Amino acid sequence: MARARTPVVDGWFREDGGGFRLVGTRCADCASVFFPREDAFCRNPACAGTGLIEVPLSRRGTVWSWTDCRYRPPAPYVSDPAVEWEPYTLVAVELAAERMVVLGQAAPGVTPADLAVGREVEVVPGVLGEDSERVWTTWHWRPVTPEEAA
């Protein structure tokens, strides 16, 4: 039996005919863009807007920073000691059009040696974890190859 593919957070990303995209919201009054999405009010302190429109975010951005996560997080963070710890790379990506930085894990196999500040990356579908019933889906950042960038 196939396991259900379940987003780790519903409404933060989608895969459709336009490809895999992070989803944010834009204020109809001041045009500020938010991720994670905001559905109640504009988070811009200079705006009292409440009209928020769902918008797909840019697929590509540039590395703003990154860190190499090599140890199991301490309590109170949830981390099952029965599961072998796998290091990962966390990437902060600047989306120029939205004027924001979005965090996410690097795609499997991407290491800090593959990254540099200013390097172009793109958002791709990822898997955060699996259990007997579900595959928990998320997003990852993958470096754009020189051929893809051209």
Rank of each mutant, 00 (worst) to 15 (best):
D131R: 12
T137P: 09
V110H: 13
A106R: 04
S132P: 12
V123F: 09
P112F: 05
W141Y: 14
V110E: 13
T138I: 00
A113Q: 09
V123R: 08
V144C: 05
V121F: 08
D114P: 05
P108A: 05
L128A: 15
D114V: 11
E122N: 07
E120A: 12
V121L: 08
V124C: 11
V135E: 09
E133A: 15
D131W: 15
L115S: 09
E130T: 12
L128G: 14
W136I: 10
A113D: 11
A116C: 04
A107T: 07
G118I: 08
T137I: 04
G118A: 11
W136N: 09
A106V: 10
V110K: 12
P125N: 05
P108C: 10
E122I: 10
W139C: 03
R134N: 12
T137C: 06
T111K: 09
A116N: 01
A113L: 08
V121E: 06
T138M: 06
D131V: 14
E133K: 15
D131K: 13
R134P: 04
T111S: 13
V123G: 12
P143D: 06
V124I: 14
P112V: 11
G109N: 11
G129Y: 04
E133G: 11
T111M: 02
P143E: 00
V144D: 00
E120K: 04
S132R: 15
A107G: 08
H140K: 11
G126S: 03
V123K: 06
E120R: 07
A113M: 02
H140D: 11
P112T: 09
H140W: 00
D131F: 12
A107W: 10
T111I: 10
R134A: 02
V110F: 14
E133H: 15
T145H: 00
